[in-house]
Structure formats: structure tokens, C-alpha cells
């Protein structure tokens, strides 16, 4: 009997949504000749869509991206945290303000919880060349209350 109960418990935990064990599918953000960027949402509540228009290891400045998501929080203030790892060791961490009360950089700043957002436009990045290798990137967007707006685990494969 005990064995049966344990099996049921395991089944319940393992079933999608029930135990929160399911993860979102991995998507391709871009795939070029020598660069491939894959990402997976790490927000347990929802997935999101993201793509980069141009994909090469020589990263152009001011890239255009496309981004679609449902907001779970107000974003009068929005911050991006980025952590870059290679072979398990941390290479780079930085935090970037996307929307601030005194400087809403993008037109979507100030949109409200529940709104669906589609952004196609520049991200104002620097241009540089990505060295050959495999990188893990964790990106997190959060608002003024530190509530998660979006979260992604990305893999960058550069050959």
C-alpha cells in the first residue's frame, strides 16, 4: 500500500504544472553562420518570445530585436540584470536601467500589468566581436518592487 501511495505521490509531483516541475521549451533567438542563440524562460508563470534580427559573431551596434510578452507587473521602472558565464565560471555581471521615472528610455515604459507588449526596435548595444566558445547568459527583467517581469536562461554558441 505504502509503495502505491509513494508512486502516486511521485506521479503527482512529476506531472506537468502540478509540482511545478515543467519547464518552458527552448527557443531559437537567432541562428546565423557562426552564431546560435538559444533561450528558455525561467519565469514559472509564462513563456515569452524573443528574436534578434541579425546573427553573426561580429555583433553590430544598435541591434534590432523583437520581443513579445504579457506583463505580469507594472513597468513604470524596469531594470535588466545580466550574468554571463563560460564553462561554469562567471565572466561578467551588469545591471542596466531600461525604464526609470526620470528617464523612460523606451516607448513601452509605463505600460501596465496585464498589457501585452510587442516591441520591435533597437536596443542601443555596443558592437563587438564574440570570441569562439559556448556561453551561458542569465537575463532578468524586474520592476521597481523587484518583481520578475521576464527571466531567461540563454546559451550562446559561437564557432
Amino acid at each position: 500500500m505504502k509503495g502505491f501511495t509513494a508512486a502516486l505521490l511521485l506521479w503527482a509531483l512529476g506531472s506537468p504544472r502540478g509540482g511545478g516541475g515543467e519547464s518552458w521549451p527552448t527557443h531559437v533567438a537567432c541562428r546565423g553562420g557562426n552564431l546560435e542563440v538559444l533561450y528558455q524562460s525561467c519565469d514559472p508563470r509564462q513563456d515569452f518570445g524573443f528574436s534578434v534580427d541579425q546573427c553573426s559573431k561580429q555583433l553590430e551596434p544598435n541591434l534590432n530585436i523583437r520581443f513579445g510578452i504579457i506583463l505580469r507587473e507594472d513597468i513604470s521602472e524596469l531594470f535588466l540584470d545580466l550574468a554571463l558565464f563560460s564553462q561554469g565560471s562567471s565572466i561578467l555581471n551588469f545591471s542596466f536601467p531600461v525604464c526609470e521615472a526620470d528617464l523612460p528610455k523606451f516607448s513601452f515604459c509605463g505600460r501596465r500589468k496585464g498589457e501585452q507588449i510587442y516591441y520591435a526596435g533597437p536596443v542601443n548595444n555596443l558592437g563587438f566581436e564574440i570570441p569562439v566558445g559556448e556561453y551561458q547568459v542569465r537575463l532578468e527583467l524586474y520592476n521597481q518592487d523587484h518583481s520578475t517581469v521576464a527571466c531567461a536562461n540563454a546559451t550562446v554558441l559561437c564557432s
Binding site: 523612460p104 528610455k105 523606451f106 516607448s107 515604459c109 516591441y119 526596435g121 533597437p122 542601443n124
Partner: peptide, 9 residues
């Protein structure tokens, strides 16, 4: 009067 613009505009 708020007449600002944005990165993507």
C-alpha cells in the same frame, strides 16, 4: 507638458 521621445521612436 511632457514632449519627450524615445530610443525606438
Amino acid at each position: 507638458l511632457w514632449l519627450g521621445t524615445f530610443e525606438d521612436t
